[in-house]
Simulated scan of single mutants.
Amino acid sequence: MAKEAIPMTTPEEDTTTTRALQGLESGSSSVRLRAVLAVGTAPDPRFVGKLVERCAIEPDFYVRDMLTWALTRHSPTTTVPALVGELRSERAQARSQALHTLSKIGDRRAWPALTRELLTDGDDEVARSAWRAAVVLVPEGEESELAGVLATQLGRGGRETQLSLSRALIALGEVITPVLRAAMTSRDPRVRQHANATERLLRDPDAGFEFAIEEAKRVAVLGTGGQEG
Rank of each mutant, 00 (worst) to 15 (best):
T9F: 10
P11D: 06
P11T: 05
P11M: 00
P11N: 02
E12M: 07
D14W: 01
T17L: 12
A20E: 11
L21C: 06
L21R: 12
L24P: 04
E25V: 02
G27Q: 09
V31T: 14
L33S: 13
A42F: 04
D44T: 01
R46H: 06
V48L: 04
V48S: 03
V48N: 07
V52S: 05
E53Q: 14
E53Y: 02
R54A: 13
A56C: 07
I57H: 12
I57Q: 08
E58R: 08
P59Y: 02
D60A: 14
F61C: 05
Y62V: 11
V63Y: 03
V63K: 10
M66G: 00
M66E: 15
L71E: 06
S75Y: 04
S75V: 05
T78A: 14
V80C: 10
G85N: 13
L87H: 11
L87S: 01
R88G: 15
S89E: 01
E90F: 07
R91T: 08
R91P: 01
Q93W: 00
Q93F: 06
S96V: 00
A98R: 13
L99G: 06
L99M: 05
I105P: 08
G106T: 09
A110R: 09
P112C: 03
A113E: 05
A113F: 00
L114A: 01
R116V: 11
R116F: 02
L118V: 01
G122E: 11
G122L: 06
G122C: 02
D123Q: 14
D124A: 14
V126Q: 11
W131K: 05
R132N: 13
A133V: 08
V135N: 06
V136Q: 09
L137I: 07
L137W: 08
L137N: 03
G141R: 08
E142Q: 15
E145K: 15
A147P: 02
A147R: 10
G148A: 09
V149I: 15
V149C: 10
L150K: 10
L150W: 12
L150R: 04
T152W: 04
L154Q: 13
L154M: 12
G155R: 04
G155L: 11
G158V: 01
R159V: 06
R159L: 08
Q162E: 14
Q162I: 07
S164K: 02
S164W: 02
L169W: 06
I170T: 01
A171M: 05
G173F: 02
E174M: 07
E174Q: 14
E174V: 13
I176F: 01
P178T: 05
P178K: 13
V179H: 14
V179Y: 06
V179I: 08
V179N: 03
R181S: 13
R181C: 04
R187T: 11
R187K: 12
P189L: 05
R192K: 15
Q193C: 14
A197F: 07
T198M: 13
T198D: 10
D206I: 00
G208E: 11
F211P: 04
I213A: 03
I213K: 13
A216K: 03
A216T: 02
K217Y: 06
V221R: 15
G223W: 11
G225T: 07
E228Y: 14
E228R: 15
